[in-house]
Design a protein around this nucleic acid. Structure first.
Lengths: 333, 333
DNA sequence: TCAAAAGTGTTATCCTTACACCCATGT
DNA sequence: ACATGGGTGTAAGGATAACACTTTTGA
């Protein structure tokens, strides 16, 4: 196997680190600065280079640079996806003399300890800030019908004949328009649709860069369309959240985000924060019980504001044994 | 982002191409030959380099070189995993002067047309040949208890105290020993276990290479332990099949493997060939019916050997609409 | 007429969904 | 006593798993 050309490849690693923070699901972000110390206005995911001469595996390299960059030790980690397409502002990097192609390998990491103060360079961002339309916990977000649907409609109308209907169809399916069901795990497809439709500010930026124009002033937080991120990081984040939401349904990943002891309400809040949909209390508990993955400790948590709640722990030993696993989501209403 | 060293990275692409062939699920393999035309004794997956200067996306590069190498046009394609660990015989490649680190991006591809004659260089291999223990269609494979379980037992006994029990536990869960349930989608974990336990010939080879010894004569097909492949290709294959089996249960991927018209029995045979478990006829049909993904054509297929069967087609339009999707597997017995 | 495969009916059981109500604490 | 969450009971409907039987062809 020989490379056909002199263009070198650089492999970058990025991490979607998810944890609970003050009852909200949050991701670890960094404010990148260039070599002159100028700090970017937009946040990014922790990312770093993979050194082919030194790093034995991607995962070890990832753990090392996240610890170095953010002071954070990762627990549960899994590979997400490898991004190599041109034109999504995963652009050229300088390497000695000349430009290199950057390929970035994204990872998803979960941690039960998302505490610790934010520093000037790192912060935990409630991920709903990046994707406000993904939060259905208090019902269908108004912005979907007020802003997103009209925007997509406009975009569909720009297309010729057959294409317009196909675009509308996609919009309907993904954003649950006209009574289509909401599929919470399709986070990436929704983001991609908004990107294609030009509703994500990253799209305009990438187009400008591709055409050699100056990138427009980065847009800031928009309550309907969310907060953009540097490079293709919001896309990687969407990939991670989609994967996490899907995984919730067939693997006991929720427990990678809990402290060692927790109440069932806290667990439910957690699953709701990740999946973005409200759950039916009793059915959630019954489903949990059926899995046998959780064990009451016989002790109470008094700080609930009402009746004290029983504390539970995750019975990890039983996770491997039982036939099925993973929670399912008895959606409320 | 700057590379820390002078070691270059080369990106390779590999494809797990799955199709039905004479009623069996098969993967497309190539017999690699070196520059002198000497052909390897072992089969490999189609693989090729990614050219950072020419190729816009991984997927386009993949389609191009698979077509070139095997004459095959791919249909449905999805990225599997990116393999970059050292020591799994994804070893160094020659690049001009000096060695490069090879990172390989694996893809899964499905095709309804696995016909066409084998050539000297390419062949469709029934994938059960690589993983005989994965075929439970005619009941629990005898080799599991006769060969694999004792082998794993020996391996566990080599470990000290606590470790031995952990190894046994893993073996029990993955290979359904002592009444543990069989989880058909854990193809990769099972292969990895066999590799760690030294029951896959690839392990001895990789150890020899890592220690600078000559690689042992490649072992050939073993009816219990399967047929090894070059490099880490059997691992990539296991990743692909595990993914495919899992996906069967929540996405309508089975139809990417069918011809445009098919009988329900043929579809059932197909799902059984992929998942490796026997299915309950009527419950399979009922489940299918519920999804509404399939439409009778009102015509019959006479060549069944018994009563003619009704022909169906996949109603792709309906796939996007309906709430759930994917078949589930009503396992027989 | 018989083998071979296609195709159906029926039931018990379990899971899911949904409704409504009771319990224990702090103020 | 009442507000605030924690924590049940129960019943309808639907999905699953398992049973065995009928139908239609070719040899």
């Amino acid at each position: 196997m020989r490379p056909q050309s002199g263009t070198p490849v650089v492999i970058g690693l990025s991490a979607v680190v998810v944890g609970m923070r003050e009852g909200e699901a949050a991701v670890l972000t960094v404010k990148p600065h260039d070599d002159n110390g100028k700090v970017s206005a937009l946040a990014g995911l922790p990312f770093g280079p993979f050194d082919p001469a030194q790093d034995r595996t991607f995962e070890l390299a990832l753990r090392a640079f996240v610890a170095e960059q953010t002071g954070f030790e990762l627990g549960w980690v899994e590979q997400l996806y490898t991004f190599g397409d041109q034109g999504r502002d995963a652009p050229l990097a300088d390497v000695g003399a000349g430009a290199a192609r950057v390929v970035s390998v994204g990872y998803l990491a979960l941690t039960p300890r998302a505490e610790g103060a934010d520093t000037p360079d790192t912060a935990w961002m409630p991920w709903v800030r990046a994707f406000p339309w993904e939060d259905w916990r208090r019902g269908r977000p108004a912005a979907i019908d007020a802003v997103i649907a009209p925007g997509l409609k406009r975009w569909a109308d720009e297309a010729g004949r057959g294409a317009a209907e196909a675009r509308l169809q996609r919009a309907r399916q993904l954003f649950a328009l006209d009574g289509a069901p909401w599929k919470e795990e399709r986070v990436l497809d929704r983001y991609e649709l908004l990107y294609e439709a030009g509703l994500a500010p990253e799209a305009a930026r990438d187009r400008a860069l591709a055409e050699g124009r100056a990138a427009p002033e980065p847009a800031r937080f928009d309550p309907a369309l969310g907060e953009p991120m540097i490079s293709d990081h919001r896309r990687i984040l969407a990939t991670g959240l989609g994967r996490l939401r899907a995984k919730l349904q067939y693997r006991p990943v929720a427990f990678e985000l809990t402290p060692p002891e927790f109440t069932l309400s806290a667990l439910q809040k957690l699953v709701e924060a990740i999946s973005g949909v409200p759950l039916h209390k009793q059915n959630f508990r019954r489903a949990l019980e059926r899995t046998g993955l959780v064990e009451p400790l016989g002790r109470l948590e008094p700080d609930t504001g009402g009746r004290p709640a029983e504390l539970y722990r995750y019975a990890r030993e039983r996770a491997a044994a039982g036939p099925p696993q993973g929670l399912n989501l008895p959606v409320l209403r």
